[in-house]
Amino acid sequence: MLLLLAALAGLGLWLWLGKRRKQIPAAWLGIAGTLIGAVLVAKGMPVVGALVTTGAGLWLRYGGMLMGRASPAPMPTNRADLSRAEAAELLGVTPDADRDAIIAAHRRLIARNHPDAGGSAGLAARLNAARDLLLK
């Protein structure tokens, strides 16, 4: 029984370290915890298994919020919040830049600041609003 607990603890540690390095989806940790809890219940440890399964359920429900993940991204900024000068400064172009320069600057900045690439959703929304305002 001790060997089973050590193996399950090792699996949990491996998943936790893998999440830190490779960004394993949070759901996999909850699923693994549920399976570990079920195995513990089947092996005759219902109290420990129930605690592990409950923890896994909480992980599935609340995910990374328990680990200090930031709150959801703010709502996108609309065009009314930016002036033309601010939009041009944000994209790094002159206020009278042509369409191609605006699009090139936007693509360069959004590639680095897109939420899927680890950037901020708020900044990406502001970049999109600035592009839309200058292209208008």
Rank of each mutant, 00 (worst) to 15 (best):
A7L: 14
L8A: 10
L11E: 05
L13T: 02
L13R: 00
L15I: 03
L15T: 09
W16Q: 06
R20C: 07
R20A: 10
I24T: 00
P25D: 10
P25I: 15
A26N: 11
I31W: 04
I31K: 11
A32S: 10
L35E: 08
L35Q: 09
G37I: 01
V39I: 06
L40V: 03
K43A: 09
K43E: 07
K43Y: 02
M45K: 04
G49Y: 09
L51F: 13
V52A: 04
T53K: 14
T53I: 07
T54C: 13
T54E: 01
G55Y: 09
A56M: 14
A56Q: 13
G57M: 14
G57F: 13
G57H: 11
W59P: 04
L60C: 11
L60Y: 10
R61D: 02
G63N: 04
G64E: 10
M65N: 04
L66A: 13
M67C: 07
S71F: 12
P72Q: 05
P72G: 04
A73W: 01
A73N: 02
P74C: 08
P74Y: 01
P76W: 03
N78L: 08
D81M: 11
D81A: 00
D81Y: 00
L82Q: 06
S83D: 13
A85K: 15
A85M: 15
E86N: 12
E86D: 12
A87R: 01
E89P: 00
L90C: 07
L90M: 05
L91Y: 06
G92L: 07
G92T: 05
V93M: 06
T94N: 09
P95L: 13
D98Y: 14
D100W: 12
I102M: 12
I102V: 13
H106Y: 07
H106A: 05
R107E: 07
R112M: 15
N113E: 15
P115D: 13
A117W: 14
G119Y: 15
S120A: 15
G122T: 05
L123S: 13
L123E: 12
R126N: 12
A130L: 10
R131N: 05
R131S: 00
D132I: 07
D132M: 12
D132L: 10
L133D: 01
L134Q: 10
L135I: 01
K136F: 08
